[in-house]
Design a protein around this nucleic acid. Structure first.
Lengths: 144, 144
DNA sequence: ATCTATCACCCACAATTACCCACTTCACGC
DNA sequence: GCGTGAAGTGGGTAATTGTGGGTGATAGAT
């Protein structure tokens, strides 16, 4: 379990510090600090320890037929852009330009915990997403 | 596993750089850097290490009867146009005009990883494909 | 035979990344 | 107050990666 929300800043080279508590979770629960980072539907990035990546993403891929339409889309959108990131000595990862662009990350970055993975957001985008989320929770999914 | 998406540019001679990480995968996992490149259904090119080419493309060909309709189409569309490409000292391959034209590659080219193969896209084409993919993933296949 | 187009090979430069070191900030204790 | 250590940030440098272009060999055409 990755806990809490943490604001960090990405530097000019595209490096961001992974919150220390997340790194601690990675080490103690998954053995090392590497994560597999990829796109999410909602405009942020998702980071998985390899074991969780395998168990969630790859497994749901394999459950579909090879020529399934959903599978091909999923493969292109989620699996292709994935890269494994290994933190440097300072605990930072370098996000490749394609992922940076997709999530519109520039400086203010937010790490949000979750079960088995965590999210990486551009702060502004996260806030507008939260408004939608709140609306959904109050009014239910059928609301316009 | 070929990881990540990489934007490279094709020069006037039709050469494109294969991302270094892909070449590294080719070397370490398949012994050398050559790939077999051919058409894909969706308007991009597919590149396979010889072993994977044999295991996926040729094998699925052989699984059909010699006079099977699907087999003849598959052979014409996928197998015939395939060429073996060996990177030059800078890591670039030269794509023959027929394949270049088919995938509408001109300058901005995107390499997208995958399991056992990778894709080569014209960037603009890829982006419109991704929009469709995202729509499908968010709304399901029955969405208009 | 000779011309031309194409491709392999080589060199040079630009952009990006890995690796290292240093500094700041903050919380906690003495 | 003042050290101490952990967390987060910034920057320099060397190596790697990506790009552009020149040259000579080769093959096919005239």
């Amino acid at each position: 379990m990755f806990q809490g929300e943490h604001k960090n800043t990405m530097d000019a080279k595209g490096r961001v510090n992974i919150p220390a508590s997340f790194r601690e979770t990675l080490r103690s629960r998954y053995g090392d600090e590497q994560v597999i980072v990829t796109r999410d539907y909602d405009g942020c990035l998702h980071a998985y320890p390899p074991k969780e990546w395998e168990r969630n993403v790859i497994a749901s891929l394999r459950s579909r037929d090879f020529n399934d339409k959903w599978r091909r889309s999923y493969e292109r959108f989620v699996v292709s852009p994935a890269v494994t990131c290994i933190p440097d000595k300072q605990g930072r990862i370098l996000l490749p330009p394609t992922l940076r662009d997709f999530a519109e990350l520039d400086k203010a970055v937010l790490f949000a915990g979750g079960e088995g993975h965590f999210e990486i957001w551009d702060i502004a985008r996260r806030e507008s997403q939260l408004e939608q989320d709140l609306d959904m929770l109050k009014n239910g999914p059928q609301h316009p």
